Amino acid sequence: MGLKGKLIASIEVKCGGHLIHDIFHTNAHHVPTISRAFNRFEIHEGEIIKIGSIISWNYNDGGQNKFTKQIIEDIDPHKKSIRWKIIGGDVLEMYNSFTIAVACEPQWVTWTIEYEKKTEDTSEPLIELGIILDLNKDIEGHLVKN
């Protein structure tokens, strides 16, 4: 049927992947001041950033305000990785499940999106991947500048 899929994108970074991991692991609340697309971060349950914490983001997708609510499923400080599962928001209108993971190496950041479409006609989440890669570029630019 082809309803499940996975998108993986690796991007080279000048600032060091560990710094990008640190932003998401301990300073996610700064993302709205760094990013052009993400404009709000909120913790609903738990704390920055612990497994089981429930967080949300407001972001701009082509001029439309969007919302995503996520639970932190996994954090590996040694591998510099974090995995978020979407539990609410706009993305779940088109997908039954949606998980985002980031793994940071010294010069590379790899983003993985795993998803299950609601219908065969649903497109792959290339727009969502683009938003994430733009976010990565915004964070890198901020870290290199500072």
Rank of each mutant, 00 (worst) to 15 (best):
E116L: 03
N146A: 10
T110Y: 00
I8Y: 00
I51W: 00
M1Q: 08
I72V: 15
I48D: 09
H44T: 10
S56P: 03
T33F: 09
H78S: 12
Q64V: 15
E73V: 06
G46S: 05
G5D: 02
F67N: 06
S35G: 05
T122V: 14
V102S: 12
H30K: 14
D90G: 08
P106N: 15
E73P: 01
I113D: 01
G62V: 01
I11W: 07
D61V: 05
G62D: 02
Q107I: 05
E116I: 03
Q70Y: 01
S35Y: 04
H21C: 08
L19Q: 15
A101N: 09
E93G: 02
S97I: 00
I113S: 02
T26N: 15
K6P: 00
D61Y: 03
L135Y: 10
Y59G: 05
K85T: 12
D121Y: 02
P32L: 08
T99Y: 09
D90I: 11
Q70K: 06
H25T: 12
R36A: 13
D138Q: 11
K50T: 14
I51M: 09
Y59L: 12
G89P: 13
L3R: 09
S10R: 10
V144W: 05
N60V: 10
E73I: 03
I86C: 05
E116D: 03
M1A: 12
I55G: 06
G46D: 05
K69I: 10
V91G: 03
K118Q: 08
E128R: 10
L135S: 14
D76Y: 01
K137Y: 12
K50L: 09
W108D: 09
E42H: 11
K80F: 07
D22W: 02
E105K: 13
A103R: 15
N39F: 15
K4I: 02
T112R: 01
I86W: 00
V144Y: 06
A101P: 04
G62A: 01
E128V: 13
I75D: 00
L19H: 13
A28F: 06
I100L: 13
